[in-house]
């Protein structure tokens, strides 16, 4: 799958309270959650970000709580993919489990890219291309087990397939 979108740059250690504040967790409505995405650290972000856009961040993206509302809010806002140097582990598994594409890339894109630079992402190959300059960056490949979950669209679909196979 090929994704194209504008890059929105975030720093290190973006925590789940910053992604979606706890005061909005009395709902799990994805559209409602999305409307408060990054509200406390970047007011108005939901209005700025367009469908298909890409979040580019530093180390330890999604640290803090286990709230799946965080990747749900990102997905709900139409963000097509999150690229970070590294992800906190619960966020990492939550994103894979709900089928939000994420890429770990050691190149410090969050330092070198400009806000709203256009990116093309080849998810299958883990290849990130800066459209204007043509510069390419390689993301870490997923283990086959996770590739299978991503290919099927999430952990629910993966388990459903298994339940069907085992009757």
């Amino acid at each position: 799958m090929i994704l194209e979108g504008k890059a929105w740059i975030f720093g290190d250690n973006i925590d789940t309270d910053a992604i979606i504040a706890a005061r909005y967790l009395s709902t799990y409505d994805q559209a409602e959650l999305a409307s408060h995405l990054m509200e406390d650290i970047r007011p108005g972000f939901f209005e700025q970000a367009g469908s298909g856009d890409i979040i580019v961040a530093g180390n330890n993206f999604g640290c803090g709580s286990s709230r799946e509302h965080a990747p749900l809010a990102i997905k709900g806002a139409g963000i097509s993919c999150v690229i970070a140097v590294s992800f906190a582990r619960i966020f990492y598994r939550n994103a894979i489990n709900i089928g939000l594409p994420i890429l770990e890339c050691q190149d410090d894109l969050y330092r070198t890219l400009q806000e709203q630079d256009l990116l093309r992402v080849d998810l299958d190959r883990g290849l990130i291309q800066e459209i204007e300059s043509g510069n390419e960056h390689q993301a870490a490949p997923f283990p086959p087990f996770m590739q299978e979950i991503i290919r099927l669209g999430g952990l629910v679909e993966y388990v459903q397939k298994r339940l069907r196979e085992t009757g």
Binding site: S66, R67, E68, P71, R93, N94, G154, L155, V156
Partner: peptide, 10 residues
């Protein structure tokens, strides 16, 4: 260890 809601559902 902490996980997300989908893990809990599974």
């Amino acid at each position: 260890t902490g996980v997300g809601s989908t893990d809990l559902a599974v």
